[in-house]
Design a protein around this nucleic acid. Structure first.
Lengths: 205, 205
DNA sequence: TAGATTGTTAATCGATTAACAATC
DNA sequence: TAGATTGTTAATCGATTAACAATC
């Protein structure tokens, strides 16, 4: 069995990938742990150590070939493919997500949108026809979708979560401002802007 | 000088506050570190230790009075007041944020919305008239706003950040998928859904 | 009182950093 | 070669957990 990589390391890899992709866009071919660390506010030692969990991607004296490192990180994170994502909730936020152009090229594509409001079912949002939540399990199973984004009111978050899990979803990005319970084989990530704002105000006089 | 509290502790307080607020909504008066920990997937010892940095809020044998603990946490996090927030970027995401009803009651209120697109300037989004970005510094100074949410394209994020910082902003919630550089007295939090999705795919077969 | 739970100390665990031989 | 930078080891630093006296 391969050694387990700390989750905190996994959490930094997408940041490395994002910064490297940008460097590549700026036309740069090579970088160093020092340069990357400066951009990210992370020590160079930490970057080298993190990367070394997955192999030696650099060359002494030279640094890292950006296109190569980008490919390697995509492979590690399994985003060298396109994941179909189910979006539940077609309110303002769900709508913004449905229109967001930033998923493609980074490994994700919204494949379907659900909502339980009669106002919204059947309407078109971006390129999607909003489907009733009752169809959720069926569509997710049919497309073999593994990831969902949850943009429903907090009161419905747990119920929808249970449906998603029952349908085979293994990762949930939860925008509802509430903790959800899932089996341990399901990963959850949270986005709550207020939580992050509250983390800043502590420091502001 | 009071001892410095680890930032990782500060980062958990909003989660405690959110869970406690919900417990209160459900009509519960008292909770224990064990119960709260179960809800959040955090050990009871950690919760007690975190809280103990700020004082003894509980009673042996009984636990914590929820309304009291909520007030105390709000005070610690300085959200027992209302912070005015500047929103920059009136695209899909900015629009969704402008309509979001979840800021009020948790310590925040969007006070103004900016965009540099002639299409959007002067238009109404929710209760706000979109103002040109050139007005940014003036309005922020006038209202003494300390916090901004950044929902502009990545290419403009650093430029807008520099303007915000020059105008006296001390906390930035950055929705643009790019790292921004700020002086060390300014706090930045990031929201990039793709980063969080990529952190999950590593674990999904 | 007996049972429950806190706040805190000490022990454990894990993550970060410093340093450097290897080498491009 | 001389300079630069990696990958890795060991040392340091910090965070979490276990345990328990205090006490409601």
């Amino acid at each position: 069995m391969p050694p387990t990589i700390p989750d905190i390391v996994i959490g930094r890899l997408p940041l490395y990938l994002r910064a490297l992709t940008r460097l590549a866009q700026e036309g740069q071919q090579v970088t160093s742990s020092h340069e990357l660390g400066q951009r990210l506010g992370i020590s160079s030692a930490q970057i080298r150590k993190d990367l070394s969990h997955f192999g030696g991607f650099g060359k002494q004296g030279t640094g890292y070939q950006i296109p190569y490192l980008v490919e390697q990180l995509k492979q590690v994170l399994k985003v060298n493919r396109e994941w179909e994502v189910a979006l539940v909730g077609a309110g303002d936020l769900g709508s913004a997500l449905a229109h967001y152009r930033g998923f493609v090229n980074r490994g994700f594509r919204i494949a379907c949108v659900f909502d339980n409001s009669p106002d919204k079912i059947g309407k078109t949002i971006g390129e999607f026809v909003v489907q009733p939540t009752e169809k959720l399990a069926e569509v997710i199973r049919e497309h073999n979708i593994k990831i969902a984004m949850l943009a429903v009111p907090a009161e419905h978050a747990q119920d929808v979560t249970d449906e998603l899990v029952a349908a085979g979803i293994q990762g949930i990005l939860n925008y509802a401002p509430i903790n959800i319970n899932v089996p341990e084989n399901v990963r959850v990530q949270y986005i709550d802007p207020v939580v992050q704002l509250q983390r800043m105000t502590y420091y502001i006089p």
